[in-house]
Amino acid sequence: MAGLQKILIILLVLFLVLLALVFSLNNQMAVSLNFLLFETAPHGVAIWIILSFVVGALVGVLLTMLATVRTSVSRRQLKKRLTRAELALEKSRNTTDRTT
């Protein structure tokens, strides 16, 4: 089953690469992008679109990594608090057992 899944993923990636190649070959018109005070060199439309997807994916990965780090730090802090609370509860139970 895992082998079939790998084959399907490889086929999907190959299909997406082929689709990007066909897209870039059909969109060869050179355009330059104008930002407020900055103008880029002219490149094909497909280059700009593919570049924007790549930058978007990288930003998404970066934000996901930051969220993962934040979650793991929070989880570690909560585990420490839980351990302290369990120790305090055990200590409280031991003192009540001795008094009764």
Rank of each mutant, 00 (worst) to 15 (best):
M1C: 01
G3W: 03
L4G: 00
Q5T: 10
Q5S: 10
I7K: 03
L8S: 08
I9E: 05
I9V: 12
I9S: 02
L11V: 13
L12N: 10
L12C: 05
V13N: 10
L14G: 04
L14T: 15
F15T: 00
F15L: 12
L16E: 04
L16F: 13
V17N: 00
V17A: 05
L18Y: 04
L18Q: 04
L18H: 03
L19C: 14
A20Y: 09
L21C: 14
V22P: 06
V22K: 06
L25A: 14
N27S: 10
Q28D: 06
Q28T: 15
M29A: 13
A30C: 15
S32L: 07
F35V: 13
F38H: 04
F38R: 06
F38K: 05
E39H: 04
T40G: 01
T40W: 08
A41P: 08
A41K: 11
G44S: 11
V45L: 12
A46R: 00
A46T: 01
I47T: 11
W48Y: 05
W48P: 03
W48S: 02
I50A: 04
L51K: 12
L51Q: 11
F53L: 10
V54A: 13
V55W: 10
A57F: 00
A57S: 06
L58V: 15
V59L: 05
V61S: 01
V61K: 05
T64L: 09
M65N: 08
M65A: 09
M65I: 15
M65P: 07
M65V: 12
L66A: 11
A67D: 00
T68Y: 08
R70S: 10
R70L: 06
T71F: 09
S72C: 13
V73N: 00
V73F: 05
S74I: 06
S74A: 14
R75K: 07
R75C: 05
Q77M: 04
L78N: 05
L78F: 08
K79H: 07
K80R: 05
R81L: 02
R81C: 01
T83S: 03
E86T: 14
L87T: 07
L87N: 10
L89H: 03
S92E: 01
S92C: 14
R93E: 02
R93W: 04
N94K: 14
N94T: 04
T95H: 09
T95C: 10
T96E: 02
R98T: 11
R98Y: 02
